Every structure is written in structure tokens, then in C-alpha cells.
Computed example of a mutant assay.
Amino acid sequence: MLDALDTTLERLLKRELPPNVPSEDTEVFISFDTPYQGAIKKKPAINFFLYDVQENLELRSSRWLVERHSDGTVTKKRPPARVDCSYLITAWPQNEDDIQTEHQLLGEVMKVLLRYREIPETFVADNFEGQEIPLRLISLRPSNLQSFGEFWQAMGGKEGTRPKVVLHCTVTISVSVDAAEPEAGLVGVYQPNVQ
């Protein structure tokens, strides 16, 4: 499921980023690695680091879903949980010191994310089953991290890592929490035979 979300975000960026960023003859790669120097193999790259997954309690529903079948039976199941998947987005130019290209890449990603409040169905991965389309996308809001300094310090254990500018986005997905209840017959309403 999370891999399908990664594919969805990759599709969105690949189709929406301008072809001349950073230049006409340079392919921009999309990565989902931990963001430290040496982890991102192909550059220039946009890296989406999934750092937080939480249930969205505001969208929680306690109403059961009841599906009626033509044979008179019904299936009852809980509604899917809504889960917020939060990413830190960083740009990785060919040359680590090329801040201009890093900012150019981030600026174009920012435009794409702000263009969409929801991810349209055309970008959703084929294997992303059970989703309520379109997927909600929230961009450029405060992250769930207590401190970016602590985050980069933790990444600093990796050789050559320095703090980078980050964008933040959260996508809300649906997660089926259980299988359907066994089918049951409907209780009919008594209708006397009046002549």
C-alpha cells in the first residue's frame, strides 16, 4: 500500500514537472530513500522521505458500511481508517554545492504540490486498491517533527550529511481495517395477504 502511494507521487511529479528543469537534457530522478549524502544514487533527484504515518482522527467514522446484494443478503463491514502519510521532500543536484539547482528543483516541486489539493485519479497507481479517489494532499504545512535540527543531527551520523531545505506534504489514504462480516439474510417486513 505505501509502495503504491510512492508510485502515485512519482507519477504526479514525472508528469507535472517541466521538462526543462534543471535543463532540457537532464533527467530528474525520484527517490524514496533516507535523505543523507550517498543514499541518493541517481542525481539530480527529488527525494520523498516517508517519516510519519498516523491515523487521521478527524476523518474517523464509526458508521458501519452495509452492502445489499441482489440475493437478499447483506454484508456489513467497518469503514476504512484514514491515515496521514507525511513526507519530507529534498532536492539533490548533481553537484552537492549547486544550491541554485537545488532551489530550482524545490521551487518546481512546490508549484506542483500547490497546484493540487487532491491527487487526481489519473496519477493514482494501478495497484492502489481500496482508495477513495481523489486522495487528499496537504502541502507546505508544519511538519510533525519536533525539530528539524534534531532530524538533521540524527542524519548527521551518516558521513557527509548537511542540513538541507525541505518541503513537507501529507497524503491521506484509506486503509481497510478488517474483512467483510459474513453475509446475513435481510429481515423482511410482514405483509399480510389481503384479498
Results as ranks from 00 to 15, higher is better:
Phe148Tyr: 06
Glu55Ala: 02
Glu159His: 07
Pro80Val: 03
Glu121Gln: 15
Thr34His: 13
Asp126Gly: 12
Pro19Asp: 04
Pro182Arg: 15
Ile133Gln: 12
Gly107Met: 03
Arg68Asn: 01
Asp52Lys: 14
Ile89Cys: 08
Glu181His: 05
Ile99Trp: 08
Ile173Leu: 10
Phe148Thr: 09
Cys169Arg: 02
Ile30Val: 15
Gly185Cys: 01
Ile138Ser: 00
Ile40Gly: 00
Leu88Cys: 00
Leu137Tyr: 13
Val171Gly: 06
Val187Phe: 06
Thr7His: 04
Leu167Val: 01
Asp25Asn: 14
Glu121Ala: 11
Ile173Ala: 02
Glu16Ser: 11
Lys158Ser: 14
Leu140Lys: 12
Val109Trp: 05
Lys14Thr: 12
Leu186Thr: 05
Arg68Asp: 09
His69Lys: 00
Tyr190Asn: 11
Gln195Thr: 11
Val109Arg: 07
Ile89Tyr: 11
Val74Gln: 02
Glu108Met: 13
Leu9Lys: 06
His69Trp: 01
Pro18Phe: 02
Pro44Leu: 14
Gly156Gln: 12
Asn127Trp: 02
Ser70Cys: 04
Thr75Ser: 11
Asn95Tyr: 02
Gly107Asp: 01
Thr75Lys: 02
Thr73Tyr: 10
Leu5Asn: 12
Arg141Glu: 13
Gln37Leu: 12
Ile46Leu: 00
Glu10Phe: 01
Thr26Cys: 04
Lys158Gln: 15
Ala180Glu: 10
Arg115Leu: 13
Pro134Phe: 03
Val21Lys: 00
Lys42Glu: 13
Arg78Asp: 12
Glu55Lys: 05
Pro44Asn: 14
Val66Arg: 14
Tyr87Arg: 04
Val83Thr: 06
Pro142Leu: 00
Glu27Trp: 10
Asp84Met: 01
Glu121Met: 13
Asp178Ser: 15
Thr34Ala: 14
Val74Tyr: 04
Ala4Cys: 09
Asp178Val: 03
Lys164Thr: 03
Lys43His: 01
Asn47Glu: 10
Gly107Leu: 09
Ile89Lys: 08
Leu9Trp: 00
Arg15Pro: 05
Cys85Arg: 03
His69Met: 04
Pro134Gly: 00
Glu183Phe: 07
Arg11Glu: 15
Leu113Pro: 07
Asn95Ala: 10
Val109Met: 01
Arg63Lys: 15
Ala4Asn: 01
Thr7Lys: 08
Asn127Gln: 09
Asp33Gly: 09
Tyr87Gly: 00
Arg63Ala: 15
Val171Gln: 03
Leu167Ile: 06
Leu140His: 13
Ser147Ala: 14
Asp25Tyr: 06
Leu135Trp: 06
Ser61Arg: 03
Cys85Ser: 03
Val187Asp: 01
Thr75Met: 07
Ser70Ala: 11
Tyr51Val: 09
Ile40Ala: 07
Phe48Gln: 07
Arg82Val: 10
Glu159Ile: 09
Arg136Gln: 08
Arg68Phe: 01
Gly157Cys: 02
Lys164Trp: 08
Phe49Ile: 00
Glu108Gly: 11
His168Ala: 14
Lys14Gln: 07
Thr90Trp: 00
Tyr36Lys: 08
Val83His: 04
Gly188Phe: 03
Ser61Gly: 02
